[in-house]
Each structure stands twice: as C-alpha cells, then as structure tokens.
C-alpha cells in the first residue's frame, strides 16, 4: 500500500507541475522554484510532515521536499541557537542532496561528452 500512495501522491505533484507548464506557460525553472517555496510554506503550517507520513517517498522525492527540509533543518537549530540558528541549520538536512548533486554532476561532466 505504501507503494501505491507513493505513486499516486508523487504522480499528482508532477501533474500540478505539468499544469503549471502547459496552462500557465511557466518555464521548468519557474515550476521548480515555486515548488520549493510551496514546500517551505506547507512545512511552515506543519502540513508537509503529514503528507510524508502518508505518502513516504511520494512526498520526499519531489522537489517540494527540498523546501520542507530547508525549513526543518533551520527550525531545529533555531530552537537551540535562536534566530542565528536558522542560518546554521538551513542546509543541515539538504546538504547531502546538494553535495552529491555537485559531485556526481561534476564527475559526469568530466567523463561524458555532451550529446546533441
């Protein structure tokens, strides 16, 4: 059942993205930026955690979870260190994604030739 909800919720988030692309004529970069902001705002109301509990990877794999993780890391540190903690913790949970994307992206760019 976990797999079904991951599929349905993850797919539904992508459909919202597709509607933004086709109907509102946004570029993919605009869609991704809006989704990250939405993730952070939804987490601000504690909604995104419930979605993750319900859908698992269906909510953690889409880029919206990036905004959610940014805020989550920030609030964890803000509880300990006050306002400065937001800056300390903001990349705490997302650094693994950013670091691996930089590393693998760089290595692939060195090894492969551009196509087309």
């Amino acid at each position: 059942m976990d797999y079904v909800w991951a599929f349905v919720v993850g797919g539904a988030i992508c459909v919202i993205g597709q509607i933004l692309l086709d109907v509102f004529k946004l570029t993919p970069a605009h869609v991704m930026a809006s989704f990250v902001v939405s993730g952070a705002v939804l987490d601000g109301f504690n909604i995104y955690d419930k979605l993750i509990e319900f859908a698992g990877a269906g909510a953690t794999v889409p880029i919206t979870s990036f905004g959610h993780s940014l805020l989550h890391g920030a609030m964890e540190q803000a509880d300990k260190n006050g306002l400065l903690g937001i800056g300390i913790g903001i990349f705490h949970l997302t650094s693994v994604g950013i670091a691996s994307a930089i590393l693998f992206g760089f290595l692939v760019a060195l090894i492969f030739k551009p196509k087309g």
Binding site: C14, G17, P28, I63, V108, P114
Partner: peptide
Amino acid sequence: AGAGSAVPVTGFANSITSAALEHKS
C-alpha cells in the same frame, strides 16, 4: 514526461549535470 521527470529530485540533478555538460567546451 515533461514535469514528471523535472519535479522529482532527479530533475534537480539533471539540471545541474546537463548545465555542466553543456558548457564543458
């Protein structure tokens, strides 16, 4: 797939790698 491959975190990695590859020259 359009947004189906752009919205997941894989699309984030794709945008980094493809931009890096594109400017390799």
